[in-house]
Design a binder for these strands. Structure first.
Length: 894
RNA sequence: GCCCGGGUGGCGAAAUUGGUAGACGCAAGAGACUUAAAAUCUCUCGGCCGCAAGGCCGUACCGGUUCGAUUCCGGUCCCGGGCACCA
């Protein structure tokens, strides 16, 4: 053994052994229990950041733990290789996204290997490879056949200067990030996947996932958002719309760019959905989205309204922006009829009504809905109270109680009914008039997958002037994405590439053009875990996937709690319905790792663009409380804005590269440090100041083995000598086993920070034991037993050092195949037990009682304690509570 | 704005889920060893009072339930994640 712990040499050596033994390559073994341990694959952004190290270390620790428990463990790895950052890098550096991506993969793969993860690299998948994305295309076509994929219009962010569609991330304060131009909403045709067809099952099957965090299931449930309500029809008649309405059918034609610009019937029904049909008698107006056909119709003869609708097109498309923007509206001059009373209600356009959600129209009951209440007060619309709640709904400001369920009032024949009765009665009456029925709706919307971008899976469709949109035949798959193009920020380079664009129509053989939209990258990540199971398959999946699936443990960031996990569940169910798998749910157990956060610094450019600064390139001044007051860039000394703390990301440049850490201290230190810093599910503000302590801990383990080498070798053989242990030796052995018991429990709960703490305590117990505290043979047996337990317990977290020492001490050639440690119950026994004594809940003393003492003896001993007497003396003892093994509480009066 | 989490010493955290708040570690301070440095070892380390024994306060804030609350309940503030085109 070397005098000093040299992690680089040890790690190189151990990794070579694993490599030579192909230690982590696995195959299907039908008789053996399998365990599929999967970490979310990385986007190859350039270098690993600490969030990756945390994610993959957790996955690797679980992999090695399950392996030591005897299971056939698969841990694969791959690359979520399509996406926006590659295009941004391409624009910046003039390098094709493909080249940038493959370079990043090569570097990050080297980093992952240096961390010593037990990965079966034979199964590596990159989603930008035609062998992978051809199955995106293939399944897309199957879904098209089944009607699960369909076409309709959707809203996108449009940069009028670059003439390009922007991602939400590229819109900053309503402006394009590169041009600073005010972004507009635009309606374009897109392909959709009908995930709403699976809403019921996606909701119900959450109950079949006991291994998922409640938090995540609740988020998904709320996202799917099943609601029971009533669809209500408000009849309208444009001929009776009043003096302002004399629309010329030609006037204004062609200005509405929306696809809904067609004519609408003069008489019809405006449908809305409500979960509060009981308040229908309190509806005082109806509001539609700016893009609603009735709004567009009214705008033809009303320039002011047309201008307002134009204005509504400004601003972002995200729900957050719409929910926080100032609520604005304008009367259309049109009216609709209340379906029950026949009353004339004004029709308004509201910027808070979304065309893509529900019917694009809402009935407004200002007395019992907060948003309607505000809107009505702003525009002087009437408020009619129709529910008796714990507060009368008449005053400004709004009170939450106004929205409660209650008894109907001012509602004619419905007066006195409660919520359920009122909904039933009103739904029945509407139904009799063909103006409504009960209906279940979902908050979940269908998944728009078309992206007007280059670096993604080409959508396998051909546009033919004769035949329309024609699917690419299976035998022409994959539609290969050319890899040499460089985007320039103005639209999709595929649309400017004749070699990609021009093709022949599979139907008529005439000249045609390819669809240039690519798929949302969430498609790529919705089924990659199937592909890992079937390396080299000539089909999408084969029977090998039936052995491995479902994933037994999935690990990834909490930020994926909804979208990625929901899309993956949806795709799995579609694959099942197509007969490709038996799996109903892809992930049996889910661990949502907390985010690794760091400070964010940025500067806004003159054009409105935004420039981020890495935390190590700025100078920060703080006040006495440690709050950041000012920041300067090191490079130019000019001020920089502080953006708070947030998740480490490529785009915000606040990621910390683990490479320096690994090079200085080795992979084991990086791994143990990451696990010790916080429990896996907690978020973690990055700070590497404690890393020295971890290095010190590993060095102490190494030093203990070096200094006690012979004793550790001999003691391992002399198990019988454990029985001779006396006094301090017994105490040390008890401490080892007590901490082992706690650590094994925490291992099972995947609470690795306290596992590491337990390992430290075990080492402390062993190092504190004096060599002359009892018989030498017993000493050697105690430290050898404890050290061998410690090495095995720690091996999933620090695999290199523990493997090295395991073989150095001759405990075995391969710690991977060693038995998982077990507690010796005999070592835990105590002669006496320490109890805390409280008086009225405050600690006043400590007593030690024999292990078998009964309640009466404990009470007597507790009250006899000198300090306890000071507080009990002269007072009546009301009762004494004894919590076995913990404490005694003496309750006194007066 | 809506949905989901979180808030404990100077710092990361722990607490068998209602039973000694601060284990384990970092940082800091004092000391030992050393020509010196590094490494290592010993001690102190939530605040206030006290020579000490010990006492009072303390788990974001306000209130409640309980013999006993970091833990349960009601309310407030702050921070993080998501909000459908970042992945």
């Amino acid at each position: 053994m070397n005098e000093h712990y040299e992690p680089q040499a040890i790690e190189r050596d151990v990794q070579q052994q694993w490599e030579a033994a192909r230690a982590f390559q696995v195959s299907e073994e039908p008789g053996r229990e399998k365990f599929y341990c999967l970490s979310m694959f990385p986007y190859p952004s350039g270098r690993l950041h600490m969030g990756h190290v945390r994610n993959y270390t957790i996955g690797d620790v679980i992999t090695r733990y399950q392996r030591m428990l005897g299971r056939n463990v698969l841990q694969p790895m791959g690359w979520d290789a399509f996406g926006l950052p590659a295009e941004n890098a391409a624009m910046k550096n003039g390098v094709p996204p493909a080249q940038w991506t493959y370079d990043n993969i090569a570097y990050m793969k080297m980093q992952l290997k240096s961390l010593g993860f037990a990965i079966d690299w034979e199964r590596e998948v990159a989603t930008c490879s035609p062998d992978y994305y051809r199955w995106n295309q293939w399944l897309f076509l199957r879904m098209l056949e089944k009607g699960i994929v369909y076409r309709k219009t959707g809203t996108v962010n449009w940069d009028p200067v670059d003439q390009t569609v922007l991602a939400n991330e590229q819109v900053i304060d309503g402006r394009g990030w590169r041009t600073g131009a005010l972004v507009e909403k635009r309606e374009i045709p897109m392909y959709y996947m009908a995930i709403t067809g699976y809403a019921e099952e996606l909701l119900a099957d959450l109950d079949t996932l006991p291994g998922w965090p409640e938090q995540v299931k609740l988020m998904q449930k709320n996202w799917i958002g099943k609601s029971h309500g009533v669809r209500v029809g408000f009849p309208y008649d444009l001929r009776a719309a009043g003096p302002t309405s004399s629309p010329s059918p030609l006037e204004g034609e062609g200005r509405g760019e929306g696809a809904t610009g067609g004519t609408i019937p003069e008489q019809g029904i405006l449908w809305v959905f409500t979960t509060r049909a009981d308040t229908l008698m309190g509806a005082t107006y109806v509001a539609v989205a700016a893009e609603h056909p009735l709004a567009l119709h009214a705008a033809k003869s009303n320039p002011e309204l047309a201008a307002f609708i134009e204005e509504c097109k400004k601003g972002g498309t995200t729900e957050a922006e719409i929910a926080t923007q100032e609520k604005k509206g304008m009367a259309t001059g049109l009216f609709v009829k209340h379906p029950l009373t026949g009353e004339k209600l004004p029709l308004w356009v509201g910027n808070y009504v979304l065309m893509g959600y529900g019917e694009g129209a809402v009935m407004a009951v200002p007395a019992h809905d907060e948003r309607d209440f505000e809107f009505a007060h702003k525009y002087g619309l009437p408020v009619k109270t129709v529910i008796r709640t714990s507060a009368d709904a008449v005053s400004v400001p709004w009170q939450e109680a106004y929205a409660e369920h209650g008894t109907l009032i001012n509602s004619a024949q419905y007066d006195g009914l409660n919520f359920e009765q009122a909904v039933d009665a009103i739904a029945a009456d509407l139904s009799a008039k063909n103006l409504g029925e009960k209906k279940v709706t979902w908050r979940l919307r269908d998944w728009g997958i078309s992206r007007q971008r280059y670096w993604g899976t080409p959508i396998p469709m051909i546009k033919c002037a004769q035949c329309g949109d024609v699917p690419v035949p299976d035998d022409q798959l994959p539609v290969v994405l050319p890899e040499h193009l460089v985007p320039d920020g103005s639209g999709n380079p595929l649309a400017k590439s004749p070699e990609f664009l021009n093709c022949t129509c599979p139907k008529c053989g005439g000249a045609a053009q390819r669809e240039t939209d690519t798929m949302d990258t969430f498609v790529d990540s919705s089924w990659y875990f199937f592909r890992y199971c079937v390396p080299g398959a000539e089909v999408m999946v084969d029977e090998r996937a039936d052995y491995w699936m479902p994933v037994d443990q999935y690990i990834g960031g909490i930020e994926h709690a909804i979208l990625h996990l929901l899309y993956s569940r949806f795709w799995t169910k579609v694959m099942r319905d197509l007969g490709l798998t038996r799996t109903r749910e892809p992930f049996a157990n889910l661990l949502t790792q907390g985010m690794v956060l760091n400070h964010i610094f940025f500067r806004k450019g003159a054009a409105g663009g935004i420039e981020y600064f890495p935390p190590d390139e700025v100078e920060v001044s703080r006040d006495e409380q440690g709050k950041i007051v000012s920041v300067k860039a090191r490079a130019d000394g000019q001020p920089v804005e502080y953006g708070g703390i947030g998740t480490m990301s490529k785009s915000k440049l606040n990621g910390v590269d683990p490479q320096a850490l690994i090079e200085k201290y080795g992979a084991d230190t990086a791994r143990v440090f990451m696990m010790f810093a916080a429990p896996p599910e907690a978020s973690l503000e990055w700070n590497d100041s404690a890393v020295e302590g971890i290095y010190r801990f590993l060095r102490r383990i190494y030093g203990f083995a070096r200094d006690n080498r012979e004793a550790l070798v001999r003691g391992r053989e002399a198990v019988d000598a454990l029985a001779q242990a006396t006094g301090a030796q017994k105490d040390a052995r008890r401490a080892v086993h007590e901490n082992l018991r706690q650590a094994l429990g925490d291992f099972g709960k995947y609470q690795f920070n306290t596992v590491v703490a337990g390992c430290m305590k075990m080492l402390n117990a062993l190092t504190d034991l004096k060599a002359d505290a009892g018989p030498q043979a017993a000493h050697e047996a105690v430290i050898a037993e404890g050290f061998s337990l410690l090495l095995r317990l720690l091996s999933p977290i620090a695999p290199h050092l523990t493997q090295h020492l395991w073989s150095e001490l001759g405990y075995g050639s391969d710690i991977l195949t060693a038995a998982w440690p077990q507690v010796d119950e005999g070592a835990l026994q105590r002669d006496s037990i320490d109890l805390v004594v409280q008086v009225n809940g405050k600690v006043r003393g400590q007593i030690s009682v024999p292990a078998g003492a009964d309640k009466a003896a404990i009470e007597t001993a507790a009250i006899a304690d000198a300090n306890v007497q000071r507080f009990v003396e002269g007072k009546a003892i009301a009762k004494v509570i004894v919590v076995p093994g913990r404490l005694v509480n003496v309750v006194v009066k007066g």
